[in-house]
C-alpha cells in the first residue's frame, strides 16, 4: 500500500515531517489535584493526578521518596470496534509501566517522602500514538498538581514507511506493520527518558527517524509550556492580591 503519495503527501494529507494538530486543556477533572486532556489529531487522552497523598498500602511506603503509581486504560468506545477489554491486560500493564517509569524519572520524588502519587490516564479516542499522548497528558496533569519536576517530559512517535521517515503516525500508518519509534525526552536537559521500537531498522535510518521524533517532542514541549504558562497567569491574576 502507498503511504506517501508521489506528491509527498500522507494518507491524511500531511507532509512526512508534519505533526497532527495539538490541543491541550488543564484542569478538566474537578476533584483531582491535577488533570489535563491532550489531543493529537484524533487521539484524545485524559489524565488525572492524585497526590502526593498518604500511602494506601503501608508496606509500599518509602521513607526517603514518594511512591509513583500509574494506571493506563482505554475506554471501550475509544476504538472503531467496541470491545470489552479485561482490565489489566498485557498491553495496558505494559503501557502503565512505561508511563510510570518515564514520569518517575522526572518527578523529584525525594521532596515528598512517605507519600504516594497516583496518575490515571484514559484513552478516549485512539488514533495511533496513544502512548505519547498519554505521557504528554500526564506531564501536564503533574505540572497542574504542583508536583516538583526536573523537567517536562514530552513524547512523540515516528515511523519509517515507503522509505520515508514519518512523524506522528496515525492508526492506519501504525497498523501498516512498519517500525514505530516512540521517544520521550526531557527537552531542557536534552536527555532521552523513553525509547521504544518494535521492529528492525538499519542504524543510519534509525538515527534519522529518532531525530525526527525528537524534533516532534520539542514542538510538543513548546506547546505544553505555552499552555502551562497561560494557565499559571490565569490563576494568578484571578486570585488577585
Amino acid at each position: 500500500m502507498e503511504y506517501v503519495s508521489p506528491e509527498g503527501l500522507r494518507l491524511d494529507g500531511r507532509r512526512p515531517t508534519e505533526m497532527r494538530q495539538l490541543r491541550a486543556e488543564v484542569g478538566v477533572v474537578a476533584k483531582a489535584d491535577g488533570s489535563a486532556s491532550f489531543e493529537m489529531g484524533n487521539t484524545k487522552v485524559i489524565a488525572a493526578v492524585y497526590g502526593p497523598r498518604e500511602v494506601q498500602n503501608k508496606g509500599q511506603q518509602m521513607n526517603d521518596q514518594a511512591l509513583v503509581r500509574c494506571e493506563y486504560s482505554m475506554a471501550n468506545f475509544s476504538t472503531g470496534d467496541r470491545m470489552r477489554k479485561p482490565k489489566g491486560d498485557r498491553r495496558s500493564t505494559e503501557i502503565s509501566l512505561v508511563i510510570r517509569q518515564t514520569m518517575e524519572a522526572c518527578i523529584l520524588t525525594h521532596l515528598m517522602p512517605r507519600s504516594q502519587i497516583d496518575i490515571f490516564v484514559q484513552v478516549l479516542q485512539a488514533d495511533g500514538g496513544t502512548r505519547s499522548a498519554c505521557i504528554n497528558a500526564a506531564t501536564l496533569a503533574l505540572a497542574d498538581a504542583g508536583i516538583p519536576m526536573r523537567d517536562l517530559v514530552t513524547s512523540c512517535s515516528s515511523g519509517y514507511l515507503n522509505s520515508t521517515p514519518l512523524l506522528d503516525l496515525n492508526y492506519i500508518e501504525d497498523s501498516a506493520g512498519g517500525p514505530d519509534v516512540t521517544v520521550g525526552i526531557l527537552p531542557k536537559l536534552d536527555k532521552v527518558t523513553l525509547l521504544q521500537m518494535d521492529a528492525k531498522l538499519p542504524i543510519d535510518i534509525f538515527e534519522n527517524v529518532m531525530q525526527l521524533a525528537i524534533e516532534g517532542c520539542k514542538a510538543v514541549a513548546n506547546y505544553i509550556r505555552e499552555i502551562l504558562l497561560e494557565n499559571t497567569k490565569q490563576l494568578e491574576f484571578r486570585r488577585g492580591v
Binding site: 505540572a143 517536562l152 492580591v241
Partner: peptide
C-alpha cells in the same frame, strides 16, 4: 498586570 507580568514561570 502592572504589578508582576513576567513573574510567572513553568517547570524548567
Amino acid at each position: 498586570l502592572k504589578s508582576n507580568s513576567d513573574a510567572s514561570v513553568t517547570v524548567a
